[in-house]
């Protein structure tokens, strides 16, 4: 039991900091650059991603365990459908989560709602689902991995938004204003995140 928890912690720290989803795997770059203008929206987007990825890794984990990777159905040879099934499930899931939130938890919906439709095309969600299968994680490990990956996204997008609020009024060479300086900042953050690689 103790060993299992230690193992989960290692996976969590690994995917949140060491292999940060944005800064070292380049998944979810688009929202990272697009929705990081101020800390409040960045935190909203980040939380929506945490929410969706955690649910998505649970659901795709279930589908893989009981349908696609199940040796009793087609001799467990349905694995080739992973990509197709996962992307459709994620797209449907985001719609579904949006409807449920709207109905059941209006306050949470008000906070996260606008970001939800944007997440369908976020490659991080599909990336996490596929990583879970490739690494052979069970459902619990998969959910922990998904949550940690998304937490890593939340941390980096909030940090980035904080930095962007500070550099907004700086005197930057004309050509580097806007996206280029954000990319340079992301590069420097990626270097800083190398520091975590000693953790594991």
């Amino acid at each position: 039991m103790g060993e299992q928890i230690q193992n989960l912690l290692l996976i969590a720290v690994g995917s949140a900091f060491v292999n940060n989803v944005v800064l070292s795997q380049f998944l979810g770059i688009c929202p990272f650059l697009g929705v990081s203008k101020n800390v409040k929206t960045a935190a909203g987007m980040g939380s929506a991603v945490v929410f969706v990825i955690t649910i998505a890794s649970f659901v795709t984990g279930l589908i893989y365990k009981f349908i696609l990777g199940n040796p009793n159905i087609m001799g467990g040879e349905l694995e080739y459908l992973n990509t197709i099934v996962f992307i459709l499930v994620i797209a449907a899931l985001v719609q579904f989560v949006e409807m449920v939130l709207k109905k059941a938890m209006p306050s949470l919906y008000n906070a996260l709602g606008v970001y939800l439709p944007l997440i369908t095309t976020n490659c991080a969600v599909l990336g996490v689902a596929l990583t879970n299968v490739q690494e052979g994680y069970n459902i619990l490990t998969g959910v922990v991995n998904g949550f940690a990956t998304a937490a890593g996204f939340l941390v980096s997008i909030v940090l980035m938004a904080g930095i962007r609020e500070k550099i907004e009024h700086n005197d930057i060479t004309e050509s580097f204003q806007g996206t280029p300086i954000v990319l340079v900042t992301a590069g420097l953050m990626a270097i800083a995140f190398f520091g975590f690689s000693g953790l594991i």
Binding site: S24, F176, I181, L183, G187, L188
Partner: peptide, 14 residues
């Protein structure tokens, strides 16, 4: 490594 990608792209966009 990862940061280099950001720097090269930054120069390209600039």
């Amino acid at each position: 490594l990862a940061p280099g990608a950001f720097f090269v792209l930054a120069c390209l966009v600039a």
